[in-house]
């Protein structure tokens, strides 16, 4: 996040860090005890699912706290329009975890924006561990920035070509104060507060550079995908849980039994 500030702990309890091969690569958000919402481009190009790790309850990438939890990926569902029209639009991924998230004050799900949400006048925030300067500096502390929403017509004008900004996208950025999202923030949430409830309206997706204020950040519009997201969360079975292992404990159990029998027979 360019022009942001470090976030305090537990302020963004739905924030997820997606690691690949041990490094933070993307953001995400908790939408269910088994599901994380992120960007499709974070997971495409035949990346190995086994190499991903997801962290929740984290504000400093180098300092796990007692509420930090680590997860492996069970499966990733990319939105079909991303697979059809890549790289334009549909930049949404649903990530199913191998085990369930334990919710706490520091780890909570965010609400999905409904399809009929009126975005006018909302106070919205983006968060992430992406680059914090045009020179490529990054931050280990989660950054936050309050970003105004930019009407889609204005965003199309700024980008200069009508087809770049599609109906399943929205734009946000503070073009006067140079605040916007950047590389490494992808997949993270754009959230707005309504009646003391935080709704996710966007998923960080793309932009033309980060340091050119006339090109705001472009987000996948969550309300466009909310039915698809809810459907998969409801119908996809939870991952199979490992059964308790009997074999490693068996030899010691047997030896105890044998010892008991021997001692009984000696009486």
């Amino acid at each position: 996040v360019l022009g942001g500030a470090p976030a305090t702990e537990t302020r963004w309890p739905w924030q997820v860090s997606v690691h690949y091969a041990g490094f933070h690569v993307c953001g995400g958000s908790i939408v269910d005890e088994y599901w994380v919402l992120s960007a499709a481009h974070c997971f495409h190009r035949d990346k190995s699912l086994e190499t991903f790790d997801l962290y929740v309850g984290l504000t400093n990438l180098k300092a796990a706290r007692n509420h930090t939890q680590w997860f492996e990926v069970n499966q990733v569902i990319l939105h079909p329009s991303y697979q059809m029209y890549h790289p334009i639009g549909g930049d949404v991924a649903l990530v199913q975890l191998k085990s369930r998230i334990t919710f706490s004050d520091a780890v909570l799900p965010v609400c999905l924006a409904p399809a009929d949400l009126n975005l006018t006048g909302l106070a919205c925030w983006a968060t992430g561990w992406g680059l914090i300067s045009q020179q490529g500096h990054s931050s280990e502390e989660l950054q936050e920035a309050r970003l105004p929403l930019i009407p889609i017509a204005m965003c199309r004008l700024l980008y200069g070509h009508r087809s770049y900004i599609m109906q399943d996208m929205l734009c946000a950025g503070d073009i006067w104060n140079w605040k916007t999202v950047c590389e490494g923030d992808s997949g993270g949430p754009l959230v707005c507060e309504i009646n003391e409830t935080w709704l996710q309206i966007g998923i960080v997706s793309w932009g033309r550079g980060c340091a050119q204020p006339m090109y705001p950040g472009v987000y996948a519009r969550v309300s466009h995908f909310s039915r698809w997201i809810r459907y998969h969360i409801q119908v996809v079975p939870t991952p199979p849980q490992p059964t308790p292992a009997l074999s490693p404990a068996l030899p010691s159990t047997l030896s105890v039994l044998v010892a008991m029998l021997v001692s009984l027979s000696a009486l």
Partner: peptide, 27 residues
């Protein structure tokens, strides 16, 4: 092949928190 256990119902008695609600400050 195993499809996994059936999904538990939404808003079950395990007391899943409401979405989008931060913990009360000082809690």
């Amino acid at each position: 092949w195993v499809r996994g256990p059936p999904k538990s119902p939404r808003n079950s008695s395990r007391g899943d928190p409401a979405c989008g609600r931060r913990a009360v400050p000082g809690k």
